[in-house]
Amino acid sequence: MSTSPELPAFPFGDPQGLDVEPQFQRLRSAPGLHRVRLPYGVPAYLAVRHEDVKALLADRRFSRAYSVGPDEPRLLPIVQRANRLNAAEGPEHDRLRRLLAAAFTVRGVERLRPRAERIVADLLDTVEKQGAPADLMELFALPLPILMICELLGVPPADRVRFRALAESFLAAKLHQLTAGQIAGAGQQLRQYLTGLVESSHSDPGDDLLSSLAAEGELSDEELVAIAVTILIAGHEVLADLLANVTYFLLTSPAHHRQLLADPALIGPAVEEMLRYTPLGSSTNNPRRALEDVELGGTLVRAGEYVVPVINSANRDETVFPAAAQVDFSRETNAHLGFGHGLHRCLGSALARLELRTALGALLLRLPGLRLAVPAGEITWCEGGLVRGPLTLPVAW
């Protein structure tokens, strides 16, 4: 753990709702990168401007694979395992991306649209059957992505309640309610289940991603399990929080809500704007480490030093997004970094967009009178910085 008292501590605070730390605006106008200390690991630089974050993520001289380890600047005490998809680089990473690319293209995920529409409709049936007030987080935002991941990975229907419980235990680190040992234990149980799922994909293949990858024979079982864990981490909690955050925004911004009700064709641009505007944690879980001396944003980063890309700040950069603090569903250009950039850009972006557009469109159509069932100030938000979203989202209609 860093003990450098002269460096400012990061995160700068724990903003609530959809706010971002006000310090970012000042830092974006100051020259260079900004040295900070995180709760665990060694000190790091922050890249906060859109130009610098984009350059960092695209520059192979800044390594994600080389960042993983006990010195990695991070929020939680647990030391991350090197992930073959998110942290791999070079020929191995290129091979994995190539094998997965076909399943995650726009055309590839379109085959999941009918199932996504059915899942969304079934979940909204449950919401309406329960009646108001209903917790949209528990009944809609959280189950949607996990059910889509079950479809993608081929989790049998009989196992889906158990799979969701394992997944949520593994991802409960966002609430800081588990010790490092408990997190590791939950991860071990999840990997044991996924190992069995991979074995089933050999003996009883289905029409799912794991069966398809297993049939190609280019990946080991260990690699298939690692891919499944990556898909779960990237596609479950973040997407659930994003869906809840978009809904919260609409229910606290009546003008924007009315705009989408009047013109559903704006749902696509609205999703892109919310990907830009919505803060998802502190973006501190993917630092890069310099493989050599590199100048970035006017700062010389020495070999071995870490740089943290702060997506939340880059997406509010006024030099790229006019009136960046305002939500504009008619924004003409939207070069947001919500899905990252460069070598490790989110492979599942097309699937995430499909889920968000399907869910938002169905919500507006089925529940046009949707509203918060409690004052906005009574919504409790996740604390800790890894991800950002409401713990519950009580609604009426």
Rank of each mutant, 00 (worst) to 15 (best):
E138A: 15
E138M: 08
E138L: 14
A141V: 06
A141H: 11
A141W: 07
A141I: 08
L142Y: 08
P143N: 07
P143M: 06
L144I: 12
L144V: 10
L144M: 15
I146V: 15
I146Y: 02
I146F: 01
L147D: 00
L147V: 01
M148R: 02
C150N: 05
C150Q: 01
C150Y: 07
E151Q: 14
E151Y: 04
E151L: 05
E151F: 05
L153D: 00
L153Y: 00
L153H: 00
P156D: 00
P157H: 07
A158L: 07
A158T: 13
A158F: 03
D159T: 12
R160E: 04
R160V: 03
V161F: 10
R162W: 03
R162P: 00
R164N: 04
A165L: 10
A167P: 10
A167N: 10
A167Y: 04
A167W: 08
E168V: 08
E168I: 03
F170P: 00
F170E: 07
F170Q: 13
L171N: 15
L171D: 14
L171R: 10
A172S: 14
A172D: 12
A172P: 05
A172M: 05
A173T: 10
A173K: 01
K174W: 04
K174R: 11
H176N: 11
Q177M: 10
L178S: 13
A180H: 01
A180N: 00
A180V: 10
A180R: 01
Q182I: 10
Q182E: 15
I183G: 01
I183Y: 01
A184K: 11
A184Q: 13
G185M: 04
A186K: 07
G187T: 06
G187L: 05
Q188N: 01
Q188G: 02
L190W: 08
Q192P: 09
Q192R: 11
Q192V: 15
Y193P: 06
L194R: 04
T195A: 11
T195E: 08
T195M: 07
T195C: 03
G196M: 12
G196R: 13
G196L: 11
L197V: 12
L197R: 08
L197F: 02
L197H: 06
L197Y: 03
V198H: 00
V198P: 04
E199R: 13
E199G: 08
S200N: 07
S201D: 03
S201V: 14
S201L: 09
H202M: 08
S203Y: 00
D204K: 14
D204L: 13
G206F: 14
G206I: 15
D208P: 11
L209R: 04
L209T: 13
L209Y: 06
L210T: 11
S211Q: 08
S211E: 12
S211C: 10
